[in-house]
């Protein structure tokens, strides 16, 4: 239809399936994000460590390459064993990069819609608040996945393919730990930054609030622990809780004063609070009662 005719007509074509409409949000968000050179540079930076790790794994299994470097496989294995600690270190490193990415992107996820009454445009359509929130969650969740569990799982699979199924049988828990711990960290980061985005419309202030939360929760939990000679203060530090769960999943023994159920409780309460807050605040119009 030629637009010069200024024609407006009814639409009688097919509609997209409602179940996948939430994916429209990430698609549009990525169009915007991919224009940022800073973002592209950061994503390349995030690939540096996994590529280095992949090189190490490859070297460890390539006799010709080891000969050229005057190394033996056992020397390399002794110096840098590829096991739970290797992957845990990588996960911590990539998790930190993911946190920085969430800090950079998360606070501007929802605030532009809230600042200009954009939510009414979304919710006046056959598109629910939960679909909206899930769509926004996916924007950050997919990017954080690309930084965290996706490269780590590729490394894990590379190691399995080179070392064989016997290594997989002994270390399958590493794969499970990578997936679960990353998912948990992504969930916490995304919900935290989405909540900050709703609470504080200005990006810089929202970033400050998230950083402030990390710092304040760490400082407060430490203070409570020291003053009361307890470890219960850790219950307010969700970062520490995620770290503990990650250690547990990788098979590292935890100290008795910090049982794993307490870490899970912290994470569940934190996520629950964020979901409750988002449910209250993400509405087409706020009602003054």
């Amino acid at each position: 239809m030629a637009v010069y005719e200024h024609t407006y007509r009814a639409y009688d074509g097919a509609l997209t399936p409602p179940r996948t409409r939430f994916l429209i949000i990430p698609r549009y968000a990525y169009r915007h994000v991919l224009r940022s050179r800073f973002f592209i540079a950061y994503m390349i930076l995030c690939a540096f460590m996994p590529i280095s790790a992949a090189t190490l794994i490859y070297l460890r299994h390539n006799a010709t390459a080891l000969d050229m470097l005057h190394l033996t496989a056992s020397q390399l294995q002794t110096a840098l064993p590829i096991g739970a600690n290797f992957f845990r270190f990588l996960m911590t490193f990539q998790g930190t990069l993911a946190a920085l990415l969430a800090l950079f992107m998360g606070p501007s996820l929802l605030s532009p819609d809230l600042a200009n009454n954009g939510l009414a445009l979304y919710f006046a359509r056959p598109f629910s608040r939960w679909e909206y929130l899930f769509g926004k969650f996916c924007v950050l969740g997919i990017l954080l996945s690309l930084v965290s569990w996706v490269p780590l799982m590729l490394l894990f699979l590379l190691q399995v393919s080179l070392d064989g199924t016997s290594w997989l049988a002994e270390n399958y828990n590493i794969g499970v730990a990578i997936l679960l711990a990353s998912a948990l960290w992504i969930l916490v980061l995304t919900l935290m930054t989405m909540s900050a985005s709703v609470m504080i419309r200005r990006k810089a202030l929202a970033i400050g609030a998230v950083v402030g939360y990390f710092f304040v929760s760490w400082a407060m939990s430490g203070t409570i622990n020291v003053i009361n000679r307890t470890s219960w203060g850790d219950i307010i530090d969700v970062t520490k809780a995620c770290g503990r769960i990650s250690l547990y999943l990788f098979g590292v023994e935890l100290p008795d004063d910090y049982p794993i159920w307490r870490a899970w409780t912290t994470v569940i309460l934190f996520c629950g609070a964020c979901v409750w807050f988002l449910n209250r605040k993400v509405r087409a119009y706020q009602v003054v009662r």
Partner: peptide
């Protein structure tokens, strides 16, 4: 339903055609 809100309502950073297209897609148009 189509809804034209009373208040200023838009999504910052989007062009007019981008915004209208986005809304059409959210309404189910391919």
């Amino acid at each position: 339903i189509g809804y034209m809100p009373e208040n200023e309502s838009f999504i910052a950073g989007m062009t007019a055609v981008g915004l209208v297209r986005y809304m059409a897609e959210l309404s189910g148009l391919p």
